[in-house]
Design a protein around this nucleic acid. Sequence first.
DNA 1: TTGAAAGCGCTAACAC
DNA 2: GTGTTAGCGCTTTCAA
Lengths: 365, 365
Amino acid sequence: MNPDRRSLRSGAMPPVRHAGHAAGRAVRRPTINDVAALSGVSKSTVSNVMRGTGSVSAATHARVLESIKALGYRPNAAARNLVQQRTNLIGVVVGDLANAFNAELVKRLEQHACTHGYTTLVCNTGGHAEREAARIEALLEQRVDGIALLEFTGDRAVLSQLLAERVPVIMISCWADYADCVAVDDYAGIALAIDHLVGLGHSRIGHAIDGLMEPTTRRTRMDAFERALLRRGLEVRPEWSITWDDAVEPTSGERAVQTLFHSDHAPSAMVAANDFTAIRLMELAEASGLGVPEQLSVVGFDGIAIGELSRIALTTVAQPREELASLSLEVLLSRMEQGPNAPSRQHRLQPSLIVRGSTGPPPSG
Amino acid sequence: MNPDRRSLRSGAMPPVRHAGHAAGRAVRRPTINDVAALSGVSKSTVSNVMRGTGSVSAATHARVLESIKALGYRPNAAARNLVQQRTNLIGVVVGDLANAFNAELVKRLEQHACTHGYTTLVCNTGGHAEREAARIEALLEQRVDGIALLEFTGDRAVLSQLLAERVPVIMISCWADYADCVAVDDYAGIALAIDHLVGLGHSRIGHAIDGLMEPTTRRTRMDAFERALLRRGLEVRPEWSITWDDAVEPTSGERAVQTLFHSDHAPSAMVAANDFTAIRLMELAEASGLGVPEQLSVVGFDGIAIGELSRIALTTVAQPREELASLSLEVLLSRMEQGPNAPSRQHRLQPSLIVRGSTGPPPSG
DNA sequence: TTGAAAGCGCTAACAC
DNA sequence: GTGTTAGCGCTTTCAA
């Protein structure tokens, strides 16, 4: 089947072989030495041509370029990294890529990173603290020049280690003191949502959180929610704040919703900590017979694309996604340039409310 | 606005500084030599301890481990890559991460890759041929051990170059002869959709494709669609196959739908090339007054999560996503081991139909 | 304008 | 068991 495979007559199994060493000739890629030899110059000259440094005569330049093309030479990033002590790699740590908000953010980050000559290493942690730690460890072995954290399990050990090692880190859409952060202003966002609901006549307002959500942001929005209610003199009822975790227990959402709305004094509106949760909440509410927005108004947070569909029509607090991505990368790059001693930068971006069909006046009037 | 920004008094810009060399002490990370020195052994012994190779006395082992911990030593991947001629890096090229199907596939791939000790480099091409080529070039400079293509712009040059360079490549959910491929059986899937519609009484069936879709798969599903109709003796009308590209022209979808359904002889059902398209189509149809499924039945393809929402309730041909991801990675890994001369493996996985609310009997009975 | 030489941090073959 | 040594492919002084 594979004529190139050396046949080993001896009884012992051959050791496991690795890519490139395997059956068939190893694919030896041309090195800078090959280019130098072919063009009859030294490798430093080739290097100069590649990087556009030093001064090289036009003739030599052309000759080198020709050999590069002829050989299909491509510089080896590992070798360059080793000597330059930088990799042009940026690690991106995300909790759940299946969440549309995260996916879009990652996509934009990769786009910007690429523009600046960086390649991204994306890690999905699933919100698992140990997996998060392991992936970050892998990123550090790769000697990434910086790390973007879209997810932070709240395990302070991981973050403080990163900070202690003086690795450039940007926290995106999550928050930690002493670290560079770019996030939406959760307080302003939640206030927008509450004002909208109050304006419609609601006074019994609850809060919903999905267990998958990034912990620091979850806490912040929860806090923002309570403060906003208090500031407006509205009742804060612990039993109106529901949470579930479908990963742990598939029916936990249903149970939470049933319990909440089958009590005498149920909320007429819910603010969800993100769109994912909001959409799931609408689903659960309708499944148990509550019309949205007739019996229950729902506001989300993020502004993901599917909320825009007329069948979903989710009223939501939209994050300025593009600005979030571009500013984050800018902050990270400047941290990478300025070194660990520069003062940290923390930015809060202003969200905006998008009113759609999932909110309306409360049932009784 | 931003007090932290350094104010530049001089007219000239300072030279760009690089990470680690910049303000503040350079962060010199401990090397294997530091560990060796601290434990009073040679670096090969440290290397043996790290990799669990050779034979090291228990005492030495413990001492080395201790120094490693004391120094916070972490091996440098670039150095290892250089000597081992392998990187344990896998490149993942995707067209649009914002498409839920892709995002989920990437997430699963990353998961599996990690399990096998590989780190993934994710590249989003936006369906742009030149961006695709540039990203792949970057992956090759990184000397990735293998590449997973979830997107293939159809630019044969890129793929044939990869194959010529004998880089292990797996095409996922897209197809090319002579390359390792893992994809769903598009013909079977489309047949499932058509059979379902025919069973409901439809005979005028059209096809919809979003311009963003991966070209090879798009063509295959289109072809599958036509063949399935012909095999059942149904009419294939070119004007019933619509396409649009919102990226190019935001209203192109609306126009296509208006034109199609405001003719005398319009289809009563549409098979969309993927769920993304199907959902958009439902939206467009309803916006122009056509009820789904009352006046128009819609079937999607992929089985993305939001199709499951009761408000969307999309009938669709579901891909076995987990199997797709795990088999793809297995094929890629085996290619990496076996070398370029092993026979190529091509797998077609069987999809399944999920019937939900977007399909029903045709309007006239 | 060019080249020689010294590493970057690690592995792997081999000597002791 | 442990150390010595020779690179991996590149950049970067420094001389010529």
